[in-house]
Amino acid sequence: MLTIVIQLIINGLLLGGIYALISIGLTLIFGVLEIINFAHGEFLMLSMYASYWLFQLLGVDPYLSLLVVIPMFFLIGLVVQRIIIQPIIHAPPLNQIFVTVGLSLILQNVALFFWKADYRTVRTAYSTLCLKTSGLMISFPRLVAFLLALAIISILLIFLKRTYTGKAIRALAQERRAAMLMGINIYGTYRIAFGIGIACVGAAGAMLMPIYYAFPTVGALFVLIAFVVVVLGGYNSLVGALIGGLIIGIVEAFSGFFLSPHLKEAVYFVIFILILVFRPTGLFGRG
């Protein structure tokens, strides 16, 4: 029994690392731009395809593809922000929601158009590699994904804490008018924040590729989880997104095992509603 519990915690944590990386991008975008990016999952999907094609056509290892995918998705983020998000920064919430929903519809179908509805996966030497110690099994690609996710999140947190641009992003999230009066170019900073958010989810996509399939609607699956994580952790707390991601990973592992794999999503959506109603600021959010 104890082994099972430990195994479930490990499974959950490994999964949670990726969730955290997806969610941290969503949190950053929401915290700074006050826009919920409903197309977030589609950027994950696109990066999975990017990683897939880099592997298929050029033989680039998915982990190595991060070096291409991260800067590429940062640039995509900058462009999308400028063209689509910028015009709706001061629009009513419903219009903001629908622009990103529309974007998500477009991207999903662009993928369907070019790459059909097939499930695609990459076969690497380590795809099914498993580390076994004292009755526990640790999937190698999941472990790598987890460690890489933590590394990227750490770099992001240090960047936000230490660099001028990072501080400007945080300042903008806390007090927009003062940021403007301190000489921060707020629109430029919005763009960078959006770019970083997309780069994070891009990285997550590349890291998912060895353990999951790419298909046009794969993003929808993950974006709902990311919403749960963001609300659980507190929509303006990046550390909250990290811990929220790990918690949801563990919840998923346990409810999948003890209840039913079909109910695991129902379980975390119930958690989601309870958090929203009883603690709308989340576990680590600020009022």
Partner: peptide
């Protein structure tokens, strides 16, 4: 497949 939704979106 998908082209219609691209236009619609």
């Amino acid at each position: 497949a998908g082209l219609n939704f691209i236009v619609y979106g």
